[in-house]
Design a protein around this nucleic acid. Structure first.
Length: 443
RNA sequence: CGGAGUGUAGCGCAGCCUGGUAGCGCACCUGCUUCGGGAGCAGGGGGCCGCAGGUUCAAAUCCUGCCACUCCGACCA
């Protein structure tokens, strides 16, 4: 992609409404544009990052056996009256009337709708377990949206819903999502810790929330240092086997957010040298809520003995748009964003230091073409600007690699290559660049 | 929803107290010179001063009401 033909509105100064670092950097690097409190347009660079996050989430959901569907953003109120949540949900729910005076709402979540789909088509225990998910925009009319996309009113969420014939099956489904979540966040370059959580308005008895560690996170986190060393299950994990041994280490060490933190227990259970107090951002939560929705919504299947029984459900959310902010909170420096390879909007930023110089133009243009042909996404800065401005822009938008082509090096047939995260530079021959990048690019 | 604050060009701000032709920096356009870490000079375009009402010969400025946005608290992917 040629920068001269792209749409990348960089801001040199920070808009004053942005208080936290991810919000500032998202506005400055041209990822988002605020349209109203907690409501954002996604500009090209932000859109690409979110698409990468979505892709990883999707791959891990699929791997864990969940099946993708897509439900609408607008829902009829009747379903919510049936579950009893139409009145419970309160002002957070955006209520809309259509032209016929029918009560509609912009979905804040989809338990009711997915249950409706399920009960229409599934009536036998033999079709279970089933886990349906979608990645769709939600709207929750938060009293106080803030922190940019970290707490917007409109946000993109992956929500999965599991259906099982009994509690034992529901726990297996829960465990599959537990492992999938560990893998998902790890692939995005994040350290995420699962923590025992309150179930809140979704209800149920078992729940964990996943906190991404970041110095600038909004919740205080207390945990045992050992949990930070645990190895995340590999992509060969067998989701059909008993996953409890994989999960047990993660749930056995002390880990709590500040609102449920027990100082005495922490002091007693965790040796002084391993007591970690840090901060985190909630990016996912999983629930096992049993029959909370299946009873009022009459969702049953026939068991092996021919007797109808209510299904046991769970729901599993990941804040996709929030993750964009969370990743930046966890990975940035004074100069700007430092994208993990797997979610970066482009793999390579290619800088032409002297636009108009035939030798430099030819070398940079050639690199752009061969990188693109090799399937390596590249943003080619072909603007006639000073070097300082180009470097500042590239550092700000945080692409993993910078390839710098200038007249000095080109005389020797050499370019410079810089790793954004470490600042490490090396000088390579033109031909060597391709091999170097091809080898390093594995997400 | 309680408390605090801010609305003036795309972004950052001054002007308001003490009413009198709407300004500065960045960004943008034109030209020339520059060019390996945010260039210099010259010229130029862009504003219902958040909205409505009032006071006044005259309102960005004073008064009243409303709206929007931000921050702190209680709630949340």
């Amino acid at each position: 992609m040629h920068l001269s033909r792209y749409f990348l509105p960089i801001l040199r100064e920070t808009p004053k409404e942005a208080e936290i670092v991810s919000h500032r950097l998202m506005l400055r690097a041209g990822l988002i544009r605020q349209q109203a409190a907690g409501i954002y347009s996604w500009l090209p660079l932000g859109k690409r990052v979110m698409a990468n996050i979505e892709r990883i989430v999707r791959e891990e959901q699929d791997r864990a056996g969940a099946i993708e569907i897509l439900m609408p953003t607008i829902q009829p109120a009747d379903l919510w009256r049936e579950s009893g949540r139409y009145d419970d949900y309160g002002k957070e729910m955006l209520r809309i009337g259509d032209r016929h005076g029918r009560d509609m709402l912009f979905g804040p979540t989809n338990e009711e709708m997915v249950t409706d789909i399920f009960r229409t088509y599934v009536s036998s225990y033999r079709a279970l377990p089933l886990n349906l998910y979608h990645i769709q925009w939600k709207f929750r009319d938060e009293v106080r949206p803030r922190f940019g996309v970290m707490r917007g009113r409109e946000f993109l969420m992956k929500d999965a819903y599991s259906f099982d014939v009994d509690d034992e099956g529901a726990r297996r489904s829960y465990n599959r999502m537990f492992v999938a979540y560990l893998r998902t966040f790890s692939r995005m370059g994040l350290t995420a810790i699962p923590m025992r959580a309150e179930t809140g308005p979704i209800g149920g008895q078992l729940s964990h929330e996943f906190l991404v560690l970041a110095e600038t996170g909004e919740s205080g986190v207390y945990c045992d240092a050992n949990i930070l060393q645990l190895k995340v299950p590999g992509e060969d994990v067998d989701y059909d086997r008993d996953l409890r041994p994989l999960i047990e280490p993660w749930t056995s060490y002390y880990a709590a957010t500040e609102d449920v933190h027990e100082v005495e227990r922490f002091e007693r259970e965790v040796p002084a040298g391993r007591q970690v107090a840090t901060r985190g951002i909630e990016v996912g939560q999983i629930f096992n809520f049993g029959t909370k929705y299946s009873l009022p919504m009459k969702t049953t299947v026939l068991g092996p003995n021919g007797v109808e029984r209510p299904i046991h459900g769970g729901s599993y959310g990941i804040g996709v748009s929030r993750l964009v902010g969370a990743i930046i909170e966890a990975s940035h420096d004074d100069a700007g964003i430092v994208w993990p390879d797997s979610v970066a909007p482009f793999a390579v930023g290619l800088i032409n230091l002297k636009v108009g110089d035939p030798a430099v133009d030819a070398a940079a243009g050639g690199l752009h073409d061969s990188l693109t042909k090799a399937g390596i996404s590249v943003l080619y800065d072909d603007l006639d600007q000073r070097a300082g401005a180009k470097f500042a822009t590239m550092d700000l938008i945080g692409l993993p690699w910078q390839v710098i082509v200038g007249p000095r090096g080109i005389e020797q047939g050499e370019v410079e290559i810089k790793r954004r995260a470490t600042g490490a530079r090396e000088t390579l021959g033109l031909d060597a660049v391709m091999n170097r990048l091809a080898g390093e690019r594995k997400p």
